[in-house]
Computed example of a mutant assay.
Amino acid sequence: MSKKDNGAPIILAYLNEKNRPYSAQDVFTNLQKQHGLGKTAVVKAMEQLALEGKIKEKTYGKQKIYFADQAQFKDVSDADLKAMDCQISELGADVQALTQSCRQMDAELKELSGSLTTEDMVAEIQQLKAECSGYRERLEKIKSATNHVTPEEKEKVYKERNIYVKEWKKRKRLASDMINSILEGYPKSKKEFLDEVGVETDEDCKVAVPSV
C-alpha cells in the first residue's frame, strides 16, 4: 500500500462490500490487523472519500458515521425481494437443521469422550480376570481348610456370647441405679459426678450393648 492512496481503496471496497454504516474507529478496528492501517490514516482516508463523494458522511453529535453511496446499487424489484426473502427463509431453516445436528454430534462426542478406549477396556478386563482368579484361589483354600468350626462349637460360642451380653446389661443397670441414687443428694450434674469419680460410660468408649 502506497502513502499516496493511504488505504482509501481498501476502505472504499470494504464499505461497498458491507454496505452498512461504520465509524472511523469501527473501520480501523476491522481492517487494522489484516491491512496494517493506522488510525490517523483511516480517518483521513474516510474524510477524503466523503469529500470526493465516493462515500456518504453523517454527523451524530460528535461522532461521524460513514457508509457506501447507495446510488451505485441498482434498484431491486418486488419479485427480487420476495425471492431473497424465500432464500433467507431456506437458509434459516438450513442453519437450524445444522445447529440441531451440531448439538447432537456434541452430545455424542461428550458421551464418547467419557467412554473407555479399546485399550482401557482390554486393560480393565485383564484386571478383573486377575481379581477373579485371586478370589477363586482364596475360595479353594477356604474349602480345603481342615480347621472348620463345627455346628456344636458354633452353638457353644453363641451361648457364651448371650451369657456375657446379659451380664453386661445387668451390671450396666445396677451401675445406673447406683449412680442415680447418689445423684439425688449430689449438688452437681451427672457429668461432673462421673468426671469426678473417674467413671467411663459405654458412650464415652463409643460402644453399645449388642442385642441378644
Rank of each mutant, 00 (worst) to 15 (best):
D26Y: 01
F73R: 12
F28Q: 07
K191W: 01
T29S: 12
E192R: 10
K74P: 06
K110Q: 07
D69A: 04
R138S: 11
K58I: 08
M84D: 15
V197S: 05
Q127C: 05
T40D: 01
W168E: 01
E57Q: 13
L183H: 02
F73W: 03
S211H: 10
I11Y: 00
E111A: 15
L31H: 11
R136M: 07
E124M: 08
Q63W: 02
V122P: 00
E155Q: 13
S211P: 10
V95E: 14
I65F: 01
I182V: 06
Q70H: 14
Q87D: 14
E47N: 09
P187A: 07
E90I: 00
S77V: 08
S101N: 09
K39W: 07
K172Y: 12
V122N: 07
M105W: 05
I182S: 11
A79M: 05
M121A: 01
D120C: 01
K188E: 11
L98V: 15
K206I: 11
E52P: 04
D177I: 07
L116W: 12
N162M: 12
A24P: 01
D5C: 08
L98P: 10
L139H: 05
K143L: 09
S189F: 00
L98C: 09
L194C: 13
I125Y: 04
K64C: 11
I11D: 10
M46K: 03
E184M: 09
M46L: 08
Q126V: 09
Q70K: 03
S211W: 09
F28L: 13
L15S: 05
Y158Q: 11
K141P: 04
V76W: 00
V209S: 11
G53P: 10
K170D: 13
D78H: 04
E167T: 04
A24M: 05
K190D: 14
A45W: 01
Q34F: 11
S189I: 03
K170S: 15
D106N: 05
E152G: 07
V43C: 06
K54A: 03
G7V: 11
K169F: 05
Q126R: 10
G114P: 00
K191F: 02
E196C: 15
V199K: 02
E52R: 01
S2L: 14
Q34E: 13
S23V: 06
D202F: 13
V27K: 07
Q127G: 05
G38P: 00
P21Y: 02
A107K: 08
G36A: 06
M1G: 15
K154N: 12
S115N: 04
H148W: 06
G134H: 02
D202V: 13
Q32W: 07
Q34M: 08
C102T: 08
V149R: 03
D120S: 03
R161E: 13
T146W: 06
I88T: 06
N16K: 07
V43Y: 08
S113F: 04
E52H: 06
E203H: 14
G7R: 00
C205R: 15
E17C: 09
E167F: 05
A50C: 09
K33I: 09
S211Q: 09
F28Y: 14
K33E: 13
V212C: 10
L98T: 07
Y164K: 10
T117Q: 11
T146H: 12
S77G: 10
